[in-house]
Structure formats: C-alpha cells, structure tokens
Design a protein around this nucleic acid. Structure first.
Lengths: 328, 328
DNA sequence: CGCCGAAATGTTTGCGTAAACATCCACCGG
DNA sequence: CCGGTGGATGTTTACGCAAACATTTCGGCG
C-alpha cells in the first residue's frame, strides 16, 4: 500500500479510501491511485483487513463426506448463497464420523479464520464437541433431528416419508415395507418414524424394518431379501440409491416394477428420472436448505435475533413410473 | 492474549511461546499459562497470525458446480489431503461457466485469504482470467487439457477412452458408437478423441458423434436415436449418467443389454454397480487426482521446484455385465 | 564468595490496514 | 480583504501476534 501511495504521490490513507470506495476523493486523485494500483499489481491484504475489522467474511462448514448427493448439493447451495452475501466458505472435513473425529474437527476449527459455522451432522455427535466450540461463534446445524438448543435447518424428513407411504396406501397397497438407512443415522430414523406412524394411524401392519447403508449395493441386498416376502407389494426406500438397488434386485428376480412391486425413493436425484422405470420419489429442496442455513447463520453474525429451534424445508412427492396399484 | 498474560502473571511473549509450543518455557509457567488460556477461552487470532507470517495456510478451490460426481469426489480428496497438511480449503464458486463468470471468481479470489489456488476448469476459460491472477499465487489446474503453461493434474481421459473402445472391439464388435459430453467441454473432447483414434487405428468406420450434456436424460434421448441404427451394437458413453440413460432407452425399446447392445460408461460412480445390468465402465481415481493436486500446489507454496506440465492419473476398465460379444 | 554462562522471561517492534483525528486549502460572504 | 467553512488529504494509532533483541535469574565452578 505504501508503494502505491508513493507512486501515486498521495498518502496511504488516500489509497485506502480509493480501495474501499469511500467518498471524499477527487476524481483526478482517484484515477492516479487506481493507475498506481494497476501498475504495481496491488491487492489489499485480507489478513490485515480481517485483523482490523475483527471479521473474516468466511463461514466454516463441517461435514463428514461429500460422497452423498445430499451433502454435496447442500454444500453447493451454501457456497452460492454465501458468495452472494460476500462470504467465502471454508471446508472442515471430519475424517471419521466418531466423537473423536468430530472433536478433532472442532479443534482445527478453533484455529480457523471463520465468523460462523454450519455443521452438517447429528446433534448427538455434536454434543461431544460443543465443549470445543469457540464461544461467540454462531452455529447452525443441518441434517439433524430437531433440537431446541441449536439453530437447526433441515428437510422435513418425517413429512416426506408420510407422503410416500400415504401415496402407496392410496394406490391400494395393504402395507408398505421400508428399507431404512443405517441405524446410527437420525435422518434415517426420522424417515422410518414417518413411515411407521403413517402405517399405524392407518391401522395397517408394520412389516419388519430392513436396514441398508444408503448405498445402491445395500438396496440390492435388501431387495433380494424382499422378493421372497409374499405380501411385499410396495417398498419405500430411504434414499434413491437404495431404490436403484431394489429395482435391480426385483428385475433380476423377474418381478416387474411397478406391476408386481411398487417402489418409492427419497431425494429425487437427477438420475432417478432415468432409472428403470423412472422413480417415484420424495423431492428434497437442497438449495432451499442451503439458502436458509446461510440466512440464519448470517443473521447471527450480524447480531440480529435468531431463536433456537428447527426450520423445516418442505418436501414434495414426485410421481413417476415406479408405483401403481398392487397386483390383483 | 494480553488478558491471558495478565492472568497468568507473565508477558504476552511467553503466552505466544506456549501457544506455539516453543521451547524455553519452564513447566510450571507453561501450566499457568495453559490454565489461564482455558479459563479465558483464549483462541489465537488467525488474522493476526496470517498478517505476521504472510501466509494463510489456506488453498482456494475454484469450480463451477458440485453437481457432478467427479467434481465433488475430487474436491473431497483435495479437502482431505489439504487437511492432513494443515491446510484449509476455501471454495470459490463460479456462478456461470463463462469468461465473465470466471473473471468474477478471480476478482473475488484477489480479495481472499489463500496461499494458492486449485482451478477446476478448462484452460481456455482460464486464459481469460489469468490477468486477474494475483502474481505469486501458485496455481494448479485440474480437469483440463494438457497445457505446458500451467501445472495440470488430470485423469488420463484419452487412455480411458482407448481402453473402453478396445474392449468392445476385442469382444468382436465391428465398430463403436460414442455418446459424448457437451461440445464445449475439453474433457468430453478428449474422451471422444481417444474413441476416434482407436477406431481409426483399427481401420474401423467412425460413426457420427452423438452429443449429450452429461445428464442421464440426455443419454436417454441419445439412446432413443441409437436404437434405430441397425449396425449399432456397442456404445461408449462419456460418463456413467449418460450410460444410465442409454440403458433405459434400450430397455424401453426392447433391446436387451448386453445381448443386443453393449454399453460402456466412464467414471465408475458407486451406483453403476446397481444399474440394470451392472455397468462396465472406466474407473477414475478421483482421490488420486485430488491428492496430486494438493501435493503439487503445496510444493509451489513451499518454493520447491515444480515444472509446468501435465500429470496424468491412470484409469482402468472395470468389467461388469453390460458388455458382451455382438449378436450373431 | 563472586563471576560466568545459559536458560527463562520480558520489551520493543512491525506486519498492512482503516478509523479517528489533524491539517491544509479554496472559496464564500460580510 | 479577511475570517469562516467545508471538502480534500495527511498523520497517528491500534488491531493481535511473534521475531529479534534485552534483561533477569539461577546454578556451577574457580
């Protein structure tokens, strides 16, 4: 900055004013400064700026993996909306999804230059780590169960499951089987809850729960087990990937979807339109989830009031060709 | 820091020494300082640190979208390896994949606190923006064509395509059709090049190129066109998603894969094992690509010699059930 | 018993920036 | 023609930290 000032024949303060678009600089001076900046390739040092302002204009995002569609889509939405607000996103990976792993991430976080944090994980894992949470750093949690101690944003998992199951019951299926996500996942648990309560409220039998691990392979294995169940005419898979595996299993075993078995997924990943057959599934609005996360976390950064509690983003059922009335 | 020093009854410098694990502090003093830090919830200010050291320990990553499997997997690998080296990753989104969009990203980048940049885009888009590249900031480019002006890391696209086409020719197919990615993509172009040269070297006819846009839907549309081609017994799709669309199109039109038509994809996304049938595809080692990016960019940050040029990560063909000899 | 040297700790300084305050100058009105 | 006024610009200072240098302390040895 001093170099620019010297070159332009002004003081450093004037350079600062030009650089920040402050008023009170005569055009001719401004142009000289601008020219000097150009020639010297000057760019403001963000560390010094951050030091001065006490803010980094950066939000940290903690997550386990980008391998799931939901995580990466949500992240993308967060990045985009943060950029609109002039905030950058710093990624903090959690190597292993255990308490120790989370603890490590939060320790690293302590040294990081972030004004706020968006955490994508289950609250029960977060609890172990909150001791490490720098005080005064706003936190928003995504993809977790509702919890009034934190500011939570999430897709309305339960309602999505309810819509899926209702749709199948309305088509005439006596009951609906469910291929859930892994046991330790609260998201999986909540989708399962929506499934179970809907069946119970309708007075239908609740078949045993089948657990997968979100992967298509696990859906395939679940499907191989389900083809032998005589009364299994409708399956609700907790995500689209497992639904893909189900479709393959049924296909291999000669069951035609939707004639013999109906299948509903969850997520509405782009590929699901090209499954065989195109998949009826619960659409998640990842972009909206990301948007709300950024909005709520920035409200806190700007010291506007934010009450703890859960913001639910609605889902909607997308009807395609994998569901129909049960076989006569 | 001053508060901690006062509380522990020492000077700020001693606090700094403890905080950085410097030697020359007696245990009893160290413990007092540590205790004071704990009580006051002290965290070193990374802006001040960065200002002092002139480094941020952060790498910026510029990319268009996380919607593609390749991008998000590569990003994940970059994040993980950077974390191992003690570097954080800041994401810089490019709203629209045009020169203006890229220009905007690089302008924002100039204000960002990064020591180096990994750019995931075509070099021809990068050229427009290099004027904005802060001098002295190391850059590594991923997923672009080879270019000796930059340090480039990429999957060996051409060889992957060659393997795919050779496999199909060896099975006895007379020629291979290709569903390519969008015309403006160099990645797509290079896969197409590998396909075309392999056919030419084998003295086979080169069918007209069909362009998709990477999406399963576009693969489906391409498939609907290909079913009417009488000599089309083998198709190489430029990614797995388009291959998925092909499978659906063939299925709907009564063509059995692989009996009537063989299909090979590119990427080896996890879902491809559960396509109907499981997809033979070219495996990309995204993790390795990410690892090398970080390694090469950090070499530059540390002022070790890095020659411009391309590092190619090998691919391998994964055989599953979507290919076989052509119908008699 | 006093001096030396090494280890432990303290003091000064500057990193690049922008807010707060100070100065300068031109122009206006009386 | 001079004081006043306000806009343009300059100077000082502090942000939090750590390197460089300065000082203190203490043990060991002649």
């Amino acid at each position: 900055m001093a170099d620019v000032a010297r070159r332009a024949g002004v003081s450093a303060q004037t350079v600062s004013r030009v650089s920040n678009g402050h008023p009170g600089v005569v055009d001719s001076t401004r142009e000289q400064v601008l020219a000097a900046m150009q020639e010297l390739g000057y760019r403001p040092n963000s560390a010094a700026r951050a030091l001065k302002y006490g803010q980094f204009r950066t939000i940290g995002v903690i997550l386990f993996t980008l391998a799931t569609v939901g995580n990466s889509r949500t992240l993308e939405a967060i990045v985009d909306h943060a950029a609109e607000e002039g905030y950058a996103i710093t990624l903090i990976p959690v190597a292993v999804p255990t308490r120790d792993g989370v603890l490590g991430a939060f320790t690293r976080l302590g040294e990081l230059a972030v004004d706020a944090v968006i955490v994508s994980m289950e609250v029960h894992l977060l609890d172990a780590a909150t001791v490490n949470l720098p005080v005064g750093v706003p936190v928003v949690v995504v993809a977790s169960e509702a919890d009034d101690r934190y500011v939570v944003v999430d897709t309305d998992q339960v309602d999505g499951a309810v819509q899926a199951v209702r749709h199948l019951l309305e088509l005439g299926h006596h009951t609906v089987w469910h291929v859930a996500g892994p046991e330790e996942s609260f998201v999986a648990e909540r989708r399962a809850t929506g499934w179970q309560t809907t069946l119970e409220q309708a007075g239908r039998p609740v078949p045993p729960l089948v657990h997968g691990d979100w992967s298509a392979e696990s859906g395939y294995r679940a499907g191989l087990a389900l083809v032998d169940e005589p009364d299994c005419t409708a399956v609700f898979a907790a995500n689209d990937q497992m639904a893909l595996g189900l479709l393959r299993a049924f296909h291999e075993k000669g069951k035609v979807v939707p004639r013999d078995v109906s299948v509903v997924g969850f997520d509405d990943i782009p590929d699901s339109t090209s499954f065989i057959p195109p998949l009826t599934t619960v659409h998640q609005d990842f972009a909206e989830v990301g948007r709300r996360c950024v909005e709520r976390v920035l409200r806190q950064v700007r010291n506007k009031p934010v009450e703890p509690g859960t913001t639910l983003v609605p889902t909607r059922l997308v009807l395609r060709d994998s569901t129909s009335a049960p076989p006569a």
